[in-house]
């Protein structure tokens, strides 16, 4: 199962009006693999994720998820993916249980109650089932968003800044829940984060982006060593400096 490719993105290019956001990114993720997509603001992380999710269409390149071509079988591909982002709100005017039921049904689950109970229990928030979305803190909303994204046991879980603005305790619960999910279900994880301690704890592979290119790809220690830094934070800062307009002429590569 570990050799099974769940995400195969080839030669992704995306131009926006003023610049090229993504410039030829290729990324393959296998079942059970935990991958962090890292880089400074504007490196192309979110655009890459949105293309992988089928919400933004690439100008060049193709994405295949669990063998389904995203351009032609988006709905089937989306059944294999879960997505959550720290910045996304919950659907308004719904209780948590109703909200989770709605999304479970969008994923084709007719009787989702046992999965909702299990999902809330995994992140130790079963007591929130009856709460309205507007009554929740931002950390609780993030947790509910992750439960929603994992209800259908996706083959690939995509998370954009899952622990942003979370307190340390909730962030720890998120990390533990994600590791449990990946271990138990063999779910592959692709996440972005600016918190390098999260990345080190959760991910076994890091992919650094800069100026829309992949500039490093490997396990955290190897990537840090290649840049002559002691840890990922050092690599991040190095790339962030290069990302400034004044540093644009310097190489992003090790």
């Amino acid at each position: 199962m570990a050799d099974e490719v769940v995400l195969d993105a080839r030669g992704l290019v995306k131009d926006y009006r003023r610049d090229r956001a993504v410039d030829g990114i290729s990324l393959v993720v296998h079942a059970g693999e935990r991958v962090a997509l890292l880089g400074p603001n504007g490196a192309g992380k979110t655009t890459t994720l949105l293309m992988i999710l089928g919400v933004v269409s690439p100008d060049e390149g193709a994405v295949s998820i669990c063998g389904f071509d995203l351009a032609h079988q988006r709905s089937r591909a989306a059944e294999c993916v879960g997505f959550a982002a720290g910045y996304l709100p919950l659907t308004e005017r719904m209780r948590v249980r109703e909200y989770l039921r709605l999304y479970a049904q969008l994923y084709g689950i007719a009787e989702p109650n046992p999965l909702i109970e299990a999902g809330l229990e995994r992140f130790r928030i079963a007591d929130l089932a009856g709460a309205m979305g507007t009554e929740l803190s931002s950390g609780q909303r993030t947790l509910i968003g992750i439960v929603r994204a994992t209800l259908h046991r996706p083959r690939l879980l995509v998370l954009d800044e899952p622990t942003a603005s979370l307190d340390p305790d909730v962030a720890r619960r998120v990390r533990e829940g994600l590791l449990d999910l990946c271990d138990r279900d063999g779910t592959a994880l692709l996440m972005t984060s600016h918190d390098m301690s999260d990345v080190v704890e959760v991910c076994e592979r890091v992919v650094f982006l800069s100026h829309g290119h992949i500039v490093a790809d490997g396990d955290p220690d190897t990537v840090a060593a290649a840049y002559g830094r002691g840890d990922l934070a050092g690599v991040f800062l190095h790339l962030a400096e290069r990302h400034e307009p004044t540093g644009a002429q310097q190489s992003d590569h090790p």
Binding site: M1, C80, R101, L106, H152, R153, D183, R184, G186
Partner: peptide, 30 residues
Amino acid sequence: TNPPIAPTISPDAMTARAKSWLRMRAIARR
């Protein structure tokens, strides 16, 4: 590490038409 378990949710568990109807009702209920 716990042994992997097969996902209980199979994309093929319902017919495409049944899934479409389920999704439409979910949106209407929302």
